[in-house]
Simulated assay, not measured.
Amino acid sequence: MVLISFFVMHLLFAAAQDIDYCDVSAKSCDTLADKKLIFYDVNPPEGFNLRRDVYMRFAVMLAEAHKRGKRANYQLVLPPWYHLYHWKTTRDQKDWGSFFDLDSLKSYAPVLEMHEVMTKTPKLSIDRLYVLQNYEDAFEGGVFKEKWELSNSDCYYDGFWGYNNITVKEKICVRFQGKVSKLWELTTLHPSDTKIMFAHGEIPLHDTYGTKSYWDCRKSMKFNKNLVDMATKYVSENFKCNSEKCNTYLSIHWRRQDFLYGRKDLVPSVKGTVKQIDEALKKNKLKTEKIFIATDASDSEIKNLIKELKALMYEVFLYVPSRSELAIYGDGGVAIVEQIICARSLFFIGTHESTFSFRIQEEREILGFDSESTFNRFCPDSGACEKPSKWRVVQ
């Protein structure tokens, strides 16, 4: 009787403290009670591929700390994909498993999906929300210095990915510049906090851009198997290739929309685009007439581009998802399928300063393509044309 009473009292105390318990007879007894969780979010206008890069900054930050035997109880919570500005059809919340192999992500860094956290508690209370802000002058005195300071200026955050059961105990405005690992200094301000969030996660910089740590993280970002299968089927049916490295087609990423206005000095006209594709095929003696196009161009621009290419006897391909594929995977899934197709092509031409093109170049580096077939860009019809940087994979 005494033992039973003690057990009941122990459960009541645990419930009062909001601690998770599970059946000891279960195969796994997963609990977050002894974990410290780091949440982050990104400026709403930022796109899918920049957000992938921000994830890597935080994932490397935690993975490197764990390697050094530090902060072993910290885990990174992946922010759901929600209402991205560039997505035209996807408005509902998507988790990371919709686009990536979650087991592969977890093999590199201690990450959790948001829904894994939310199923543990009906209400989530974040101890401290740090809203990061840029300094007005990053190069004060002509020198870039890593630094941060608590700010009295107003900082606004109203996100939480559509959840209405998340609250914050305290919001703190922070001017910040430097590498992402410097955020650990903020976590020491309130060492008893177990749930910490950083808004504007795009502000901290990579600790190890282009190093082995960077590429180890990047390699772990394997795509959702269903998306890989969709791309594989498309390549097999249209380009008669059943491997990850094909020699039967050229691919391009033709960025338009905001680039036509904000960065018009970086992109060519339709005729200029056709001329550069034709020259690339002839200069590199590529024996194919098949061209795959990934683009956000308007229907009229796409029609004009196809018309001009067909006049030179080229066969043009675009990936058009079915209604069911679009409903399940949304714009993000379609973008990944296009990137996989581009990554496997004989030769790739991208758009300068586009993160969509950057991600394709990284995939091609991982697959082992020659850099000369990967780091190519469209140039404006006239004027200077800076050659793209070559970020080689580090083993």
Rank of each mutant, 00 (worst) to 15 (best):
M114D: 07
V111L: 01
E116D: 12
D103H: 07
W148R: 06
K120V: 00
S104M: 00
E113A: 11
I126D: 00
Q133N: 06
V117S: 01
Y135E: 14
V131C: 14
F99Q: 02
G142L: 07
G141S: 13
Y130K: 11
F144N: 06
E140D: 15
A138S: 12
P110S: 07
Y130P: 12
E146A: 13
F139K: 15
D103M: 04
G142M: 08
E140C: 05
T119N: 00
L112Q: 07
Y130Q: 09
V143E: 15
L102V: 12
K147F: 05
V111K: 00
K123N: 09
R128P: 02
E146Y: 10
Y135P: 10
R128V: 06
V111I: 07
R128W: 03
T119E: 07
H115W: 10
K145Y: 09
V117K: 02
G142W: 07
E113H: 13
G142H: 05
L132S: 05
E116G: 08
A138D: 11
Q133F: 00
V111T: 04
L105V: 04
Y135V: 07
M114Y: 12
L129W: 04
L105A: 00
R128E: 01
E140M: 10
L102W: 08
L124N: 04
D103V: 01
K120G: 00
L132A: 06
P122T: 11
